[in-house]
């Protein structure tokens, strides 16, 4: 098992260290535990990559992400804090919540891309409801949703799903290449495309569930 008390701080130390609330020793930004007194630290404003001790980037070793997340989660388990003060228990809880948030965001390619763009100052999911008008992207989205709407049987839905899966793979590759090359605009564009493909995937799932429900009822 990795030593989570030291590792994440060492690799994700972008920001200034803070002082440990318990022993006043220096704690690297994002480190969940104090290296000196081992006390759990409040989550603070570290980015998700620093929190998990990973280098910031779209390319991510998911096995490594899992390993780090589960190791930290074990260290933050409430059972380990039953004898600690209320304050320390509360800190461990908020640290665990931030860790969950970081893991959820980074483990999914779409949310990871959206998050990386946000760190670059680009809002993919605008709160103000701003619309987009990229004709190529929207015509493709419209056409694929139409083909799903027109799919009359399971085989036709499978064909749409297979196409979606192919497009999703190439789009994730395109996003990775854009981030690697530092091309934020291209990453943004490809991320929007992935967003629409994921939405299509949701519709495919709903469609399949509806078809199953109909079959279960003994319908045609």
């Amino acid at each position: 098992m990795m030593d989570a008390a030291h590792e994440p701080a060492a690799r994700g130390a972008h920001a200034m260290p803070t002082a440990c609330w318990s022993c006043r020793g220096a704690v690297a930004a994002g480190a969940p535990f104090c290296a000196t007194c081992k006390a759990v630290q409040p989550p603070g404003g570290a980015d998700h990559f620093a929190r998990l001790g990973l280098a910031r980037g779209f390319d991510l070793d998911t096995a490594e992400l899992d390993r780090r997340y589960f190791a930290l989660q074990r260290q933050l388990h409430p059972d380990r804090f039953v004898s600690k003060s209320g304050r320390e228990r509360a800190i461990a809880q908020s640290q665990a919540a931030s860790l969950n948030d970081a893991y959820e965001t980074l483990s999914d390619p779409l949310s990871r891309a959206v998050y990386l763009l946000k760190l670059d100052g680009i809002a993919v999911e605008r709160e103000d409801g701003a619309t987009i008008s990229d004709p190529e992207l929207l015509m493709e989205a419209m056409e694929m949703r139409e083909s799903l709407a027109e799919a009359m049987d399971a085989a036709a839905v499978d064909a749409v799903a297979a196409r979606m899966e192919r497009e999703r793979r190439t789009t994730v590759e395109r996003i990775a290449a854009a981030f690697r090359g530092g091309d934020a605009d291209a990453a943004h564009k490809a991320t929007l495309r992935l967003k629409y493909l994921v939405r299509l995937d949701d519709d495919i799932r709903a469609r399949r569930a509806a078809m199953r429900a109909r079959t279960a009822k003994g319908g045609p």
């Binding site: 605008r126 619309t131 987009i132 008008s133 004709p135 992207l137 419209m142 949703r145 629409y196 939405r199």
Partner: peptide, 13 residues
């Protein structure tokens, strides 16, 4: 007119 809402993946023609 073809527009999209990126937040929810909606598309409207």
């Amino acid at each position: 007119g073809l527009v999209g809402a990126p937040a929810c993946g909606d598309v409207m023609k």
